[in-house]
Amino acid sequence: MLSFIQSMFSSHSGTEKDPIAAAIEQAVEGTDPWIRGVSGYKKKLRPAAERALAYLDEQVDGMAPSLSLEPSGYSADPRLRAFFISAGALRKVLDSDPCLADYQQKQGKTPAYALLSMIKQEKTVFGAAMTGDVILHDVAQITVSFENHHFFAPSESDQATREKIKDLAFERLLHLALKRISILKTECAGKERRNALLQANVGLQQHLRRGMDDSPHIAVPVQDMAQAQLCRSLPENAREDRILDAYLEILRDVLIRPEDHLWISRESIIVDRMGIKRREVQGDASEVPLNMLSNSEGRSHAVSLVTLPR
C-alpha cells in the first residue's frame, strides 16, 4: 500500500519499513511542515493515518475488474456505448489523452492499465416514444452522456494502477486538509490585523483625551467594532500559542474520517443505444454499472479501471 509514499521517504530513517510513518511524514509535509513542532505529532496522527490508508485500501480494492477499451469491442459492450458516442470517439480519447502520452514518452511503451474518469451528464429532452402500438410525440425523456474523459494512474498491471489510485486519493485528502488549514491561517492573519487596528484607535482616543479635555469623543468606527467582534468569535484554538495544535487537529480530523471527504458509491443506469434512460432492461436497453467517485466539495465523477489496447 502506498508504494509512492514509501519511495518519497525512503531516505528517512525507518519510514521505508513503516508505510504508516511514511504516510504521516507526507501528510505533514503536504499541509504544514511546522506541525512537526507539536510534541508527539507522530503518535497523535498515527491512528488517523492508519484509518485513512485502510479506508483507501477498502475503497480501491473493491472496485470492479477493469473494462477493456478495445475499439473493436465497442458495439458489443453496453458500457463502451454509454461512455463514448462512437468507436471513433473512443479512439480519439485514447490518442489525445496527455497522461497516456506522457507515460508513453517516459516509458517508451503504451500502458496496459489506467483509471478512466468522466463526468456524467443527465439532460431532459423531448422526443418520440412508443406506448403499445401508439407513437407519442414530445415525450419528456432523460438522456445520459459522459464527458471530459481523462486517464490517471497508468501502469503495466492492474495492481500497480490500484496502488497509484490510492496514492492519488491520499494526496486528495491532504489537499482538503490543506484548504482548511489555509482558511484558518487567513482568519488568524485577519484577526491580528483587526486587533492591531482596534488597539491603534483606542490608543489615539486616549491620547487626544489627555491632550484636550474638551475634545469630542472619537469613537471606534462601527466597521472596526464589527471586525473586533468577529475576532472574538474565532475559535479559541486559533490563538497563536495553539495554532500548530489546531493545524494538526484539522489534519487528524480529515484522515480519521476519510469517508466524510472521499468515497466511491456504486450505482447502475439502464440506457438504450441512443443514450436514453429507461426503467427496465428490454429491447436495446442495457444495464450499465457505475463507480461514482465523490468528495466533500460536491464534485462527482464516474470512474472505471480500464485495460488499454496495445
Results as ranks from 00 to 15, higher is better:
residue 77 D to F: 03
residue 45 L to E: 01
residue 94 L to V: 06
residue 243 I to P: 01
residue 305 L to E: 05
residue 79 R to A: 03
residue 280 E to A: 11
residue 210 R to V: 11
residue 163 E to C: 10
residue 88 G to R: 10
residue 73 G to Y: 05
residue 99 C to F: 04
residue 179 K to T: 05
residue 182 S to C: 04
residue 42 K to Y: 00
residue 165 I to Q: 05
residue 132 G to P: 13
residue 290 L to Q: 07
residue 86 S to N: 08
residue 135 I to C: 08
residue 8 M to A: 03
residue 119 I to K: 12
residue 198 L to E: 09
residue 223 Q to I: 14
residue 87 A to F: 15
residue 185 K to G: 10
residue 221 P to H: 08
residue 194 R to G: 06
residue 185 K to D: 12
residue 186 T to A: 15
residue 99 C to K: 07
residue 90 L to S: 00
residue 79 R to W: 01
residue 59 Q to F: 03
residue 218 I to R: 09
residue 217 H to V: 14
residue 19 P to K: 00
residue 258 P to T: 04
residue 219 A to E: 12
residue 4 F to W: 06
residue 161 T to I: 04
residue 247 Y to D: 01
residue 3 S to G: 11
residue 144 V to N: 04
residue 267 E to F: 09
residue 58 E to M: 03
residue 132 G to H: 14
residue 119 I to A: 08
residue 136 L to H: 15
residue 83 F to D: 01
residue 71 P to W: 02
residue 262 L to M: 12
residue 93 V to G: 06
residue 115 L to Q: 07
residue 181 I to K: 13
residue 90 L to F: 00
residue 51 R to P: 02
residue 225 M to W: 14
residue 244 L to P: 02
residue 164 K to E: 08
residue 271 V to E: 01
residue 104 Q to K: 11
residue 304 S to E: 15
residue 89 A to C: 02
residue 9 F to H: 06
residue 180 R to L: 08
residue 101 A to Y: 06
residue 121 Q to A: 08
residue 88 G to E: 14
residue 288 V to S: 04
residue 301 H to L: 15
residue 255 L to G: 02
residue 241 D to R: 09
residue 89 A to V: 03
residue 161 T to R: 09
residue 310 R to S: 15
residue 180 R to H: 08
residue 131 T to I: 06
residue 166 K to M: 07
residue 215 S to N: 06
residue 262 L to I: 10
residue 43 K to I: 02
residue 163 E to H: 14
residue 268 S to P: 11
residue 229 Q to A: 14
residue 223 Q to L: 14
residue 85 I to Q: 12
residue 160 A to E: 13
residue 241 D to Q: 09
residue 159 Q to P: 00
residue 175 H to E: 15
residue 202 V to K: 14
residue 265 S to G: 09
residue 87 A to C: 15
residue 185 K to R: 13
residue 188 C to Q: 11
residue 249 E to H: 00
residue 264 I to P: 05
residue 86 S to Q: 05
residue 200 A to T: 08
residue 216 P to V: 07
residue 286 S to M: 09
residue 135 I to Q: 10
residue 236 E to L: 10
residue 171 E to P: 05
residue 285 A to T: 12
residue 287 E to P: 13
residue 6 Q to T: 06
residue 88 G to C: 03
residue 245 D to R: 04
residue 252 R to Q: 10
residue 39 S to Q: 03
residue 3 S to M: 03
residue 155 S to G: 13
residue 26 Q to A: 01
residue 213 D to T: 06
residue 97 D to Y: 08
residue 254 V to G: 07
residue 306 V to N: 02
residue 202 V to S: 12
residue 26 Q to D: 00
residue 228 A to W: 10
residue 127 G to P: 11
residue 214 D to R: 11
residue 87 A to S: 15
residue 28 V to M: 01
residue 123 K to G: 04
residue 143 T to S: 07
residue 168 L to R: 13
residue 43 K to H: 00
residue 281 V to S: 11
residue 304 S to I: 13
residue 301 H to M: 15
residue 290 L to P: 08
